[in-house]
Design a binder for these strands. Structure first.
Lengths: 355, 355
DNA sequence: CTGAAAGCGCTTACAG
DNA sequence: CTGAAAGCGCTTACAG
């Protein structure tokens, strides 16, 4: 047994005394094969430790059996549960996940496409509208996550219930904690999730006859430092507020840092609520009350819709997943970070790295 | 221009009035091409928006131009900076990163190998010693991360200075904060990083003539919950200690939760130090003093060594990266979580997701 | 500088 | 149930 060259289907066929067609059929189960033949092929493949070469199958079949995932950038703890559910779902269906990172600014060509992938999960802004349009026009299977497709481009999308979640969070501050001067930290310009969260925030104010005050809306940009600076600015300017609803958990962290820095007690003086329930949320002090956006469910739904398209079926154009208010202590609730918070930690469920 | 079928090299060749060989040479720059010819080919490729099909090149060339990354599992915030540096380095050198997740227990066959990848980055225990041996025996390029290869298997490895880092952390507790009853939270059984960190811990004790007390070593398993339970047990049993050196930041979080729960003041009554400087470290309260293990540098080094092997060069068998003690407040230092901690956050450097 | 042609390792009608 | 053969879309000696 030479160690130099990996065994090919020809080697297996020769060893088993059959044609390559038969080997292929048996290994793929695409057509019945005689019992005796099967045994010989199995033995030969085993003995030669034959592994089919992906490129050759891909070329012959015209499909790659792999899914691409395109990210605008790799950042923060929001990512882990999502990635995990996507890889799990893909693996479960016999697909390999190919990840391409698209740095912001995307000058470079797409690393992933029809050439190396059967379909693509597109995060947020990692594909421009024009690119989305072009790929969809050639019927390349696509699913967009955390955004809707541009008008006229019927690409299935996976969204979360931003508006209802944001409304629930804001109403909780009003109803349970008597807050009426609630500030809002916006996400990045043009971000769809953020716009919807702001709508929910306004819904809640309106429902409780609290006038909307533009002075209480600031930029958080889903960035910790930006949010910190904004809140620090408010404090310096003596803006009066008794609560902050942050557009995401990252900006909530920043707000918390600014408040702590200024000696403002959270939640006593200013209550705080975030959005996402990212991994860090439970570790903040006080633990962050936030709206859980189900990352794992988003991942599963995305893979499902992508596979339907690959199979030639129609996919749902719009999947909206429910959000849920998670009460911890930053809003003023008694919280419960002993059992609940740690035990359902989606991240500690794994085995962890060996480091 | 038909929208049905993607253009192939034949289409381009026909459109440009040259042979496919010429198209290939021009596009890959493998051989000089006449100026006029080049112009025609460029125009044709452009007009047909030709993208070479990866599988065909792979088959013809016998290489995939992609790197695999194998993970035992996707977990926690330790992962993000590492993944980011790996993808960046790979992209920079014209490689695509293919990620395969190997769930613990690994009953399933390897998703990544010679069939679809030019080389593999192997994390921790995601490959068994036998598999490692087998792949190395057939000269498949491999780099192991956060572990050394099994004896007799000359696979390059990337490690961090665990022992020195752990010693520095422990000595800091002794020297600067006068602690002498320092507990240690071990990592998972058989974990190399953890063993080395324990060595460093013992080195420090010995250097200061503090007897090693086995009652002060407990299992943390790099898992938050496990560590929490261990520390809770110590407190219940009235074990006396004035500091905890946790094997990683995850177990440090758990220790902190247990201490807070029991009303023990950190750092006044018990000082705490972790290892890794994971994303969460700066968000704990108090911010966690920890040993920074340079995830991004590990990623870059790993890709570098892998590419060298792919190029047929010799790679360094052992790369050990320095660690650095990061002083925050959990050890009793005044800390400085205003500017430094946020501004150098490797995770907030990206654009963030639109969620 | 350019082309004709073989070959990479599979799959899959087609024929039996 | 099985095989001979064409074909997937590239690359690359080989010859000129």
């Amino acid at each position: 047994v030479s160690v130099k060259r990996a065994a090919t289907i020809d080697d297996v066929a020769a060893a088993a005394g059959v044609s390559t067609a038969t080997v292929s059929r048996f290994l793929n189960g695409t057509q019945p094969v005689g019992e005796a033949t099967a045994a010989r092929v199995r033995a030969a493949a085993e003995r030669l430790s034959y592994v089919p070469q992906a490129a050759a199958r891909q070329l012959a079949q015209g499909r790659t059996h792999s899914l691409g995932m395109l990210l605008p950038d790799v950042s923060d703890d929001f990512f882990a549960p999502l990635l995990r559910s996507i890889t799990d779902s893909a693996t479960e269906h016999g697909y390999t996940l190919l990840i391409g990172i698209r740095p912001s600014g995307h000058e470079r060509p797409l690393p992933l496409g029809k050439q190396n992938t059967d379909g693509l999960l597109v995060f947020d802004q990692s594909l421009s509208d024009a690119e989305l349009h072009r790929l969809h026009a050639v019927h390349f299977p696509l699913v967009v996550l955390y955004r809707s497709p541009p008008p006229g481009v019927d690409v299935p999308c996976i969204l979360v219930e931003n508006r209802a979640g944001a409304r629930a969070a804001t109403e909780h501050l009003i109803t349970h904690h008597g807050r009426r001067r609630i500030a809002f930290l916006r996400g990045p310009e043009g971000n769809e999730d953020s716009a919807q969260r702001e709508d929910g925030y306004r819904d809640a104010l309106a429902a409780h006859a609290i006038p909307f005050d533009p002075a209480l809306v600031g930029v958080g940009a889903f960035r910790e430092r930006v949010a910190r600076d904004t809140v620090t600015g408010w404090l310096a300017a003596n803006v009066s507020f008794d609560a902050v609803f942050a557009g995401d958990d990252g900006s909530a962290s920043g707000a918390l840092a600014a408040l702590r820095q200024a000696g403002v007690a959270v939640p006593q003086e200013v209550a705080l609520v975030g959005f996402d329930d990212a991994a860090r949320a439970r570790y903040l002090d006080p633990p962050l009350t936030t709206v859980r956006a189900p990352g794992a469910a988003v991942g599963r739904a995305a893979v499902h819709q992508l596979l339907r398209q690959i199979a030639g079926d129609d996919a749902d154009l719009r999947t909206v997943l429910p959000t849920e208010l998670v009460l911890r202590r930053s809003c003023g609730c008694p919280g419960n970070d002993q059992s609940q918070n740690l035990d359902d930690d989606p991240l500690s469920a794994g085995s962890g790295y060996g480091h």
